[in-house]
Design a protein around this nucleic acid. Structure first.
Lengths: 132, 132
DNA sequence: ACCTCAATGGATGCATATATCCATTGAGAT
DNA sequence: ATCTCAATGGATATATGCATCCATTGAGGT
């Protein structure tokens, strides 16, 4: 549902959202989250390319939440790391391609409910909400 | 949420549940479902070991839904293929170990709702319900 | 100008889910 | 007894998510 990498990203954003005025080194974020440093650097890079964080190199450098990123929904993060299909699900729980409202599978309605709850969760929750 | 293999298994059971009186060869099930034959054989074997299907070797052999399997909840299938943790979720959407009702994360309640819906779905739906 | 610091990015390793191949077993048909 | 059929099971391939390693870039301090 949410990949480990995407959860990492959310955890990182939570840390940054808690201190929006500070610039944190990758090393700090790694030790605060427990995410392996090298892997984290890839994640931070993707967050930067997605416009969610700003970075500065060299002495005094580090990462900081991008100005308006706090108001972005969690969904935006999931799209980056898990793809659109994972964020906007309209799949069948059994993987049937022929499953729709006219020809529902046995779990169609209940699965639609689960998906809706998920969608509502990731659109209602904003990055800023993650700050502990 | 539900692995491809588990969805395969459910699809297989759907086929067998639709014809509870017949014994179907692996080959037939493969072409009916589109699951690669060899991979399917592993799945059928696990279903047999789990007591969900019966098998017979050789001439006239094949697979058949086990007598009481129709009343087993889908959850039993998910436990076999995706493990207990996947069927009975009580995890945090952000992967926090420290997340509980006293110290909830930003998505705690909404995620609990999603999980509950899933749990209800897989316990309420029985194998027999899958028959198209 | 030079040095150090920290992000950037490419290449590579590892684990697991998915998929394939083939030899063996056991059951019915003849 | 022998033959054929189809499940069983072990060994091996492929793809992907996760993780590591290291060389390069660019920004500040001296």
């Amino acid at each position: 549902m949410i990949s480990r990498t995407a959860r990492y990203a959310l955890h990182v954003l939570a840390i940054l959202a808690a201190r929006p005025a500070d610039r944190l080194r990758g090393e700090e974020i790694a030790s605060a989250t427990g995410i392996p440093v090298n892997y984290l650097s890839k994640i931070l890079n993707q967050l930067r390319k997605a416009g969610l964080v700003e970075s500065r190199k060299g002495w005094g450098g580090g990462f900081q939440l991008q100005a308006e990123a706090g108001q972005r929904p969690i969904r935006d993060v999931l799209v980056v790391f898990d793809g659109l299909e994972s964020a906007d699900r309209h799949d069948c729980a059994l993987g049937r391609t022929a499953c729709d409202n006219e020809h529902p599978c046995a779990m169609h309605d209940e699965w639609a409910g689960v998906r809706d709850g998920f969608t509502r969760m990731i659109t209602a929750t904003k990055v800023a909400d993650l700050a502990q």
